[in-house]
Design a protein around this nucleic acid. Structure first.
Lengths: 140, 140
DNA sequence: CTACAACTTCAAGTGAACTTGAGGTCAATA
DNA sequence: TATTGACCTCAAGTTCACTTGAAGTTGTAG
């Protein structure tokens, strides 16, 4: 496969694939002229990378998870820790969802003045975790 | 309260509070000399902001949720839609968490060979996850 | 009254994760 | 054979959410 094929199969732009290769997240198997050639299993690898990203790992952390033979070697404790973080995160999302849903119905002059909403806030932000989150390009 | 009090109560550095004010996320109630004065309810607001951040909203999106210049007329449909989106995200994160937890225990030779892990991969790749998360390995 | 800690502004810097642009290469088609 | 379009490299640019630094101001403790 050349980079265009990988791009269309993975949904990632070629620029990202080149960047990932540069970062050591994937590797091409050779060149045809100056064009990179990829093995089909790169798609699996990209899926694994996507998984890691979604679980909150940085690219650097993900690189660290791959051994030299290319097989993932994920530290099980790290995995557990990550699951715990996700758990917290899920609770916050649930709180947010409920808060939004309530806000849509609530008649208080301002959502911030609604006791229910405030109570939710206190519960949800209690011991809030140190993380940065953003939504990806929502332009579609 | 002056900015230092807000900082110590919220756990956010003063620079962040100034930045949030500049972005319209919070507002000071006046000045004492050139020092900002904040009303105590700014802490609630900050809690709401933290909640939104943790739920995966950008600062811009959070501002947009407040944009209701005091009036109770927040766009209900948009709120419901947002809640729906969160619901989707929650489901995926739950799947992810369970998958991670399983992967930590699974004894398959490689995670890639475990059917459950493969299912996880599919979830991760199913292009519906809009959120992107990263940790700020900010060890304090 | 003076020292100084805590504030102020504004501009520039940071790091992560990409994206874009300029300028170049090359294999496959017309 | 000439064109085309998908690829290439490398550097610089972009966005987000802040942080840092320089230079200045001020309320208050000593």
């Amino acid at each position: 496969m050349d980079i265009g094929d990988v791009a269309s199969h993975s949904g990632l732009p070629a620029s990202t694939l080149r960047y990932y290769e540069e970062r050591g997240l994937i590797q091409s198997t050779g060149r045809h002229g100056l064009r990179r050639l990829f093995d089909a299993n790169v798609l699996e690898r990209l899926a694994l990378i996507a998984l890691g990203r979604n679980a909150g790992f940085s690219l650097g952390e993900i690189v660290a998870m791959f051994t030299t033979d290319g097989r993932p070697q994920i530290d099980r404790d790290q995995l557990f820790a990550k699951a715990g973080e996700l758990d917290k995160n899920i609770k916050q999302l649930v709180a947010m969802r409920d808060g939004l849903r309530h806000a849509a119905k609530c008649r208080a002059p301002s959502h911030l003045e609604c006791p229910k909403f405030q109570r939710l806030l206190r519960i949800a932000t209690d011991k809030s975790i140190k993380r940065r989150t953003k939504l990806t390009a929502k332009s579609e």
